[in-house]
């Protein structure tokens, strides 16, 4: 039984992400040995100068992509939560792409099969996008760590506000 605190995924902090695409280049360099964002497993999006975020696979607990695949080409690795693609079985029908709410499942431009984040599992120091992010906006975390982080910052803010109110009086 894999516990929720065991599965890590890459997530971006919207406060910090500036949409610079360094993560895309780091990913394609690591996983494809070339510079080509269309082969990156993480994609940055800039909807406006103030609206930037990088998005990749979140290794969902009950992954819609796996459920959607009609050919059993997708499976989730038990320990890591990584979505595995059987490139022989995948025929590029894109059901999984429709199913993923994050756009994290993508069609490989050359192989014509789907691909997604593998957490750089062969890299000794983990996901390379996280290592390269110049803004330290990306982190490799568990869902529990994410929740803790939010709690800690919420509590900090609360006490800070209380302190300021007190000081203002």
């Amino acid at each position: 039984m894999v516990r929720p605190q065991d599965r890590k995924f890459v997530t971006a902090d919207p406060e910090k992400c500036i949409g610079c695409l360094v993560c895309e280049y780091a990913c394609s360099m690591t996983n494809e040995k070339t510079f080509n964002p269309t082969k990156s497993r993480i994609r940055a999006l800039r909807l406006g100068p103030l609206t930037n975020l990088s998005v990749t696979c979140r290794h969902c607990e009950d992954p819609a992509c796996v459920a959607a695949c009609p050919r059993e080409a997708l499976s989730q690795e038990e320990n890591t939560g990584i979505i595995m693609v059987d490139e022989e079985a995948c025929n590029g029908c894109a059901w999984c792409i429709s199913a993923c709410q994050f756009g994290a499942m993508m069609m490989h431009p050359e192989k014509k099969v789907v691909f997604t984040c593998n957490s750089c599992k062969d890299q000794p120091d983990g996901p390379q996008c996280v290592k390269w992010c110049p803004e330290e906006a990306l982190t490799f975390v568990t869902a529990q760590q994410l929740a803790q982080k939010s709690r800690i910052s919420a509590v900090k803010n609360l006490f800070q506000e209380a302190k300021e109110k007190k000081a203002a009086k």
Partner: peptide, 17 residues
């Protein structure tokens, strides 16, 4: 200034929005 953003592939950031 609301945010400072940057261009593709850049490790610094300079665009003062």
């Amino acid at each position: 200034v609301k945010k400072i953003v940057g261009c593709a592939t850049c490790g610094m950031r300079c665009d003062h929005i």
